[in-house]
Amino acid sequence: MLDFLKGPVQAVQDVFTLGGKAIGNVFRRPFYWSDMFVQMDIIGVGSLPIVILTGFFSGAVMALQMSNALATYGAKEQTGMVVSITLVRELGPALTSLMVAGRNASGMASELGSMKVTEQIDAMRALGTDPIQKLVTPRMLATAFTLPLLTVIADFVGIFGGYLVAISTLGITGPQFWTSAWQALDYSDIAQGLVKPFTFSFAISLIGCYYGLNTTGGTQGVGRATTQAVVVASVLIFVLTFFITKIFVGRVY
């Protein structure tokens, strides 16, 4: 039983150690700026299409679903409000993070895993380069920078999707939709919508890098590490979103 528990506890400890080192490296030379920008390009710009599509359709679906429920209370005009609140507070950060987790946590784990199994990491270390400084920190910073930006774009595209549905099928006027959408939002909503992806970005990048750096068992191990990274990162996103929401809801009311 103790041996069974030892593994996960060790993993948690390793992830936190890795995170501590990665964050510590932010304030330590050398800075791998080019690596960071490349990672930003891969994580941010590369995820843009999938994030836009996800956001757009989730917003459109939200408008369709909620308008039915709201029509029961004669409040169909409030569709914009519901769409904006759900997207900005919850769906935007969560879906964007899940997409990035699925796309990039797996990418990081497989990339670093391949390097690990081909002993490139060891070679790097032998050449005097800190693999965490070179590989983990740029990925972590790139994710932390791009994920909130991606979330903002996803929120906007999602509300735009809801707007298209509202004016085309629900008979709500454009100004009515947009006014109710932005009037429903509060600073706490925006803060929540930015704090969440920022927090998730650490979970995604650190989990991806951790599983990549701890890959064992050759190419098979790379596949396993990739799967585990995606699963754990996704689950962590849901757990974290619950706690962050709890903090914000508890603070507001």
Binding site: D41, I42, W182, I190
Partner: peptide
Amino acid sequence: RWAQLRVGIMAIVALVILGTLIFLL
């Protein structure tokens, strides 16, 4: 450089959206 450009454009778009929303609020 291309990466920087793309990231920069994305960041500007996202920040414009965020700025507009904060301005409205």
